[in-house]
Design a protein around this nucleic acid. Structure first.
Lengths: 257, 257
DNA sequence: AGAATAGTGTCTTTGAGACAATATCAA
DNA sequence: TTGATATTGTCTCAAAGACACTATTCT
């Protein structure tokens, strides 16, 4: 920064117009599972959902919006996003990631307000209490398709679209799928989670590729019990399926080899 | 945002402390080429450099810092970054990308100032005029190694480190290498540019991989003249090398296949 | 047996990896 | 002829892609 005053004594930032606020807005994603009503064991039906709140005040009173709040001078914006997420969902220590800033003039009728957008990935299990409590309130989960069809407050439609693009990209290039899965999961669960976030995803020989540890450098590994026997699950099928877990390995991608 | 007032008439944002500024800071990268002093034609020596300015005023007077400036309420932060880049280097229409926000309390002695960090990739050719003019001034290019060893103003050391990590990742996962190359280039030029940004990069059979259009889905293509003959260059070698250009194809990466 | 998921067998083609060998051509 | 860069040849082994086939177990 090469602007403004020459020394501390005469420095006043108020010579310039300053912003009226720097909020954090959070796109909270979760994947819900609902049993399919068949007699036999089967994979659940999964949907990508997003949490919205209904505004009580001007501006955009009555319209649905992303949860968020103004950040304070005593915290970083990242901290303020985590605080807001905790207030809204009661959960802590979940994956939360900053992805863009929104600052188009006029985006907020209240003034010059620069919004910092985060997305959070929350396992359905963490939201269960909250969902029961707020069932008929002004906080609700919507499927992303619904949410995108709604007339959201501010530029939140754009923010939601951008967030969706982000998590789709990151779903395929990082291991964030684990945020939507239990510690130990089957290959079909993983496949289903990826497809829920990225509908276009399709791999015929998924199990072959994901378990050919040579190329994927072991981002997942088989779970074994104390005796070294493979640990299986028959949660979703008669035939037991091998359980896997994510390793700590971070995938390195490159277009040049 | 679910905070504050109930209607327009009684809304005053000044009930809360508001930020003292929302600047954009820009990490401007370029790659310089210097001839190696051999008699025969040879590849130049390339270095990744970053543009810094020396501060004239409090705070951090006399220290080197990233170029940047406060954004105005009449422009988005992205626009303010482009304006600042134009003012500092005279160039327009170059690759500029937002990558993070810096808002730790106390990061700026002037008050509550939230910095938005961009990186820009500028082809050496665009900087030539500017460099001559400002040779002995308070604006200079440093190699990234130098810059990282310096005691930079504010949290600019951290911002620089983050920017470097970003462009390294993006150099391998996107086609930003083209920002440092002429329209038409040889495979060795491309290889050298990648290695300049990512020293650890090494591919034995680079030419085989990059030209096996099956796997890389054609991110580059051979240049041909009107008659359909392959267009060659002997800029760097006695033996002419095939020229390539980037296509418009955007690489799609996935860890799952 | 049928339903629903979980895997394996087999074949073909393509690519990765290593590294030696050859091509070009001005000085 | 040499030096410097730019390729190609030739192996081997791993992986991608397709898709039919087998396995498990509850109802």
């Amino acid at each position: 920064m090469s602007e403004s005053a020459t020394n501390e004594s005469n420095y006043t930032s108020s010579r310039y117009r300053t912003p009226d606020g720097a909020p954090a807005d959070i796109v909270i994603f979760t994947i819900t599972s609902t049993e399919r009503g068949t007699a036999k064991k089967s994979l659940p039906y999964r949907e990508l959902q997003v949490l919205l709140i209904q505004r009580k005040n001007w501006p955009f009173e009555g319209q649905w919006a992303l949860p968020g709040g103004f950040s304070k001078e005593t915290e970083s914006i990242h901290e303020s996003a985590k605080r807001e997420l905790q207030e809204e969902t009661g959960v802590e220590n979940v994956h939360i990631e900053y992805f863009n800033v929104y600052s188009a003039p006029g985006r907020d009728p209240r003034g010059w307000i620069i919004s910092h957008a985060f997305f959070a990935l929350v396992n359905e299990a963490h939201l269960i209490n909250r969902k029961a409590a707020d069932d008929a309130s002004d906080v609700r989960l919507f499927t992303v398709e619904e949410a995108l069809r709604m007339n959201l407050a501010f530029d939140h439609h754009q923010i939601l679209r951008d967030a969706l693009e982000q998590i789709r990209r990151r779903m395929l290039t990082t291991t964030i799928a684990k945020e939507f899965l239990p510690e130990e999961f089957t290959i079909s669960e993983l496949y289903q989670v990826i497809q829920t976030v990225v509908p276009a995803f399709e791999e015929r020989n998924f199990i072959r590729k994901i378990t050919s540890t040579q190329s994927r450098k072991g981002i997942i590994e088989e779970v074994r019990d104390r005796r070294g026997e493979p640990k299986m699950s028959n949660k979703y099928s008669q035939r037991a399926a091998q359980l896997y877990r994510f390793t700590d390995a971070e995938p390195q991608l490159s277009i040049y080899g």
